[in-house]
Nucleic acid binder design. Structure first.
Lengths: 202, 202
DNA sequence: AAATTAAAAACAAACGGTTGGTTTGTTTTT
DNA sequence: AAAAACAAACCAACCGTTTGTTTTTAATTT
């Protein structure tokens, strides 16, 4: 594959990520993707085979590009293990805000039943293990309550995911809270105290 | 509108719920819905106007039909306020399992940016308030940790939603846990201890 | 260094099928 | 007689995909 071909391949992929993320598999059209990528329609079939193969390629692309736990987050959590919940939450929220494509594509994939989910988690597993070590150390240091790592991670992932995937609904539900930002701060703080032992903050 | 017309209207609505929930707005087709409802295509436009209007009608239908906190759940929680977290979680999971249409339709609506979300929450608000009273009583009785009601409810809703909307992904992520049911039980138990004060269980 | 050439890359245009939406006319039920 | 439901066709638009042609690139030959 020549240099020029690689570039157009990437242009297609970027357009696909953008449009699939915005409108889903059935909502986005090959014509739109081709137009946004400034590429002839047929190139898409030449490089990706079919619409569904393009979707999976786009999904994998996003997953490999984005690291859920940034170096900063892990380093920060290492220094202040008693605040690990707040730090990781803030990290999650930041990543999701910076890459809305990520959770949207994942949401579409889950609803539409994409098949490549195994490959996705392979990429994520290694990241998880680094965090697990930090977390379990904090638990045995009696900084955190003795809740299993899986439950803790699941809760944080769930809260973050829910905050974004139900934004439309939440605006009305959580009345009394004026802004989304306020809600995030409140949630982060509350969850942090929830998972922390009482003597840790002394 | 005659009796017969009402029935066909309902048949259309039920078919719409089923197919929109399964395949989303763009994925489902009017022809399929008409076929499943055993109704002439034209009747759909006679009663609902357009595809998008049918979608919103289907969404509202599901929301009004399903009560998120059943009478059983609330009664049970009233008797055992120290187990309110586990009880409500189990209730949520049960409702979601019994009505997969609910969260799927909501997920599609959120992704596709439906506009009728305001109406949805109006229906939910009253239910929330009954639960709030129970919860806040349990907090002031020192059975639960002093976490705001909103954060508590948000967490439980998020965990439940996440469990269903990311089922495909989770099967691989949470390795070491053999079945989904085991995971649910673990999560429920852990969250319950998390939100309960230590003296409550004594 | 310039010309040639074959493959790779990109294009334009059309294909057959399906979509949402609508209409026209007819039959059935109330 | 009016309301409800039907059958069937229509439309323009769009879907994913394919075919045939032109342009660009890079290696080869002169």
């Amino acid at each position: 594959m020549q240099e020029r071909a690689k570039k157009t391949r990437i242009r297609i992929l970027e357009a696909a990520v953008k449009l699939f993320s915005a409108q889903g598999f059935h909502g986005a059209t090959i014509d739109e993707i081709a137009e946004l990528a400034e590429v002839n329609k047929q190139r898409i079939y030449a490089y990706f085979g079919s619409k569904s193969q393009l979707f999976e390629a786009a999904l994998l692309e996003v997953f490999e590009r984005i690291e859920l736990f940034s170096h900063d987050t892990l380093a920060h959590a290492e220094k202040h293990p008693e605040k690990i919940t707040a730090i990781v939450m803030e990290g999650f929220l930041k990543v999701h805000k910076a890459h809305p494509d990520l959770w949207r594509l994942l949401a579409w994939a889950n609803l539409e039943g994409s098949l490549c989910t195994e490959a996705l988690n392979q990429a994520r597993r290694q990241e998880n293990e680094r965090l697990r070590i930090l977390y379990e150390q904090a638990v045995s240091d009696n900084l955190l309550r003795p809740i299993p790592f899986e439950t803790w991670l699941f809760t944080l992932l769930a809260v973050t995911y829910f905050r974004f995937s139900n934004e439309l609904t939440l605006v009305h539900t959580m009345n009394g809270i004026s802004s989304m930002q306020k809600m995030e701060r409140k949630l982060t703080a509350d969850l942090n105290t929830l998972f922390t032992t009482e003597n840790a903050t002394e």
